[in-house]
Amino acid sequence: MPLPVHQAPLADHAAAAAHLSRDPVLAGVIARVGDLPVLAPTADPFGTLIRNVTGQQLSVKAAASIHARVTATLGEVTADTLLAASGDTLRGAGLSWAKVRTVQAIAQAAKTGAVDFTHLSGQDDETVITELLPLPGIGRWTAEMFLMFALARADVFSLGDLALRQGLARLHPDAPTAEILNRWAPYRTLAARYVWADNARVKAGGEPV
């Protein structure tokens, strides 16, 4: 059965890149960065959100290490195993107390049905955000990253992300933000990924636009 339009993953990079390339500045970024991998929706939204939380504010390597320790400690990362574990056990696996509180709140929400992770992928973007925001430690930025990288939503650009705001200001210093984002719709997720990639290129010593 085909996915609803609001749930469709961004799979056609050629069409998306062609649309974004109508912006000559972003066209230059796309040419410099090249193709990016296609995002696909996760089969495990609950586990993906837990992994996202455990890896927040860590390097990729450190995040993978912490998640591996949590998995080894619990045997399997599920709502039941997270709720059965003591805070001290999760702290011993490398989580901060704030993250312990968040992952156990997510587990409790999944267990009680306060957040129905099995049907979350069928909700529109704002509904997903509204479902997640009441959870402690989950802000709009986390929810938007979840939309982008767990649910593979095509049209998300997080203005709560400092690097995206800085990249947007660097690429279009004199244009209103809303105007640029409207121009990039409905492929703002891919636009954001290109902005991040270009930020990394500039940080590594590449020539700025």
Rank of each mutant, 00 (worst) to 15 (best):
Q108K: 14
L171D: 01
Q56I: 11
L82M: 09
A98H: 08
Q108T: 14
M145E: 05
F157W: 06
E126P: 11
P173C: 12
A178I: 13
L181D: 07
T112S: 14
L132Y: 10
A150N: 05
D88T: 15
A110T: 07
T73C: 12
L147K: 03
S65Y: 00
A63K: 00
R193E: 04
R201E: 05
G47D: 03
V195K: 03
D124P: 12
A178F: 02
L168G: 05
E144L: 12
E207A: 15
L151G: 00
G137R: 03
L36M: 10
V5I: 11
D23Q: 13
R193L: 10
P2T: 14
R69H: 08
S59V: 00
S86A: 05
T48D: 09
V100P: 03
A63D: 02
E126W: 08
A79Y: 02
G47T: 10
L95D: 00
A154N: 02
A169M: 08
R91K: 13
I66W: 01
A93D: 02
R183E: 06
A40R: 13
A169V: 09
A27F: 05
G75M: 10
V115E: 00
G205E: 05
Y194Q: 03
T54F: 02
E126R: 13
R153H: 09
S86D: 10
L83S: 06
L181N: 07
L74V: 08
S86G: 14
L120K: 07
T42W: 04
A31M: 05
D35S: 15
R188I: 10
G94A: 11
I66P: 02
V60N: 00
Y187W: 14
R201K: 06
V29T: 02
Q7S: 15
H172I: 11
A192V: 10
W196V: 01
V77E: 02
T89C: 02
P9E: 07
L36E: 04
G113T: 09
